[in-house]
Design a protein around this nucleic acid. Structure first.
Lengths: 231, 231
DNA sequence: CGCATTATTGAAGGAGTTCAACCTTGGTGG
DNA sequence: CCACCAAGGTTGAACTCCTTCAATAATGCG
């Protein structure tokens, strides 16, 4: 079950790691294919593994006691995910579902300490990753506290276009199936409101919608909307 | 400028650290008194130091480009704060203001690597701290996405009572000056709404309000409110 | 082809904001 | 020592953004 170095060499996470170190890491990794719609792990399960996404997209969701769902984040290729143990948790705080057919590498959590010890750089970049994630969370809190829905949706869409945008004729396409419901769960609103907003945007030529599809046609226009009504 | 071990010995952060290690740490620390209303550091400043709060309370705030303010978190005695560098940031992401007269220990950020190297335990517990903070942020996002204002305020007040509650005749008092505006900035609403909610609660005997003052009289009652309307 | 999933759109209603006026409290300085 | 003022708090009324309810339409998969 040996994975070739070249598969991961390009990822920024392993930038400065020696071939030997990298190989040692990979000998313990198990590849795991995840069909669209399947979960890699579920909220509350004991955290037995941590993962690295190679290909595809995952949505990490949380469900409240009363059944409401929110999307905590989207996992993109090259991202580590499910490293609950690194944060001293024994279970996964959310569910990771494949939005598209995905491929991940998996390590047993027990290996994390070695993993880090052998690669101080990895520890640092993990810290950095978590730090970024904390900042993202605060940004989201700030937005939800101070901005009305349309701007929040604009920000969310812009973020998606950075992280998952693929140039296409006519605009930038979000490179995985995403529904109005998903966007609603990312911005703290309802699919109805999102639908209305996107329809309005489509009228103005800012985006082009469709079933589980979203293409940004006028990025600067959207950015202006997101930056808000400061005249 | 030698600080006595006993001052910090009781903090969970230093639980398992040897006296010698602790002393080594403290030789590099500078105590810093912060009068009420003063800032320890401000949003955007270069992160030159990281801190440990010994006494008092701090509010960490962020201001949006358009001047809106939110409270990111409250710092309690025993908490590390301002460790931007550990997250690979060069500047402080928020402003830390003393809600009461406070006392903090300060270290130059340059020392962080040594700090951690000499105390692997510290690295672990920092990770843990950041992990917790990330979870708190997600909790807040979840609440803001799914709950109406009254429940959010209830949760915020309960959290405060855990972290800063002091038993007093007639209830649990939040042990530092906190205004309706503050609570509004913690829950993403306006001081008007908070005022109305607290007034209503006071009618029902759940809390006792006052100028920059809050006493929880009926904790279970509040908890029921926070847990929400599931019948 | 039929059905489930996703999306659109109208109408009604409500929770919370905004605007505005007024009240309370405690600190300061004359 | 008390008058005054600023900061914090209360409360009403109007309004609005968004949700909720509801019904219908499009899309694509089995």
């Amino acid at each position: 079950m040996k994975i070739d170095r070249s598969v991961v060499r390009s990822l920024s996470l392993f930038d400065r790691m020696s071939d030997a170190d990298l190989d040692r890491l990979l000998t313990h990794a198990t590849p795991r294919r995840v069909p669209q719609g399947d979960a890699v792990f579920e909220q509350g399960q004991t955290a037995t593994n941590f993962f690295l996404l190679l290909h595809g997209r995952l949505k990490v969701t949380q469900v409240t006691e009363d059944g409401q769902q929110i999307i905590v984040r989207v996992v993109h290729p090259g991202d580590l995910f499910g490293f609950a143990k690194a944060l001293q948790r024994s279970d996964y705080p959310g569910t990771a579902t494949a939005a598209t057919e995905s491929l991940a590498l998996s390590w047993p959590t027990d290996l994390w300490p070695q993993f880090v010890e052998q690669n101080p750089l990895l520890a640092v970049s993990t810290m950095q990753t978590i730090g970024q994630r904390l900042e993202e969370a605060h940004t989201r809190i700030r937005e939800m506290s101070t901005q009305e829905v349309e701007r929040r949706v604009a920000h969310a869409v812009l973020r998606l276009s950075h992280q998952a945008g693929r140039k296409e004729k006519g605009g930038i396409r979000i490179d995985f199936p995403i529904s109005r419901q998903d966007i609603a769960e990312m911005t703290g609103t309802t699919l109805h409101t999102v639908s209305r907003i996107l329809s309005a945007w489509e009228q103005k030529g800012l985006v082009e919608g469709g079933r589980q599809k979203l293409i940004i046609c006028d990025l600067p226009g959207l950015a202006a909307l997101a930056d808000g009504g400061r005249d």
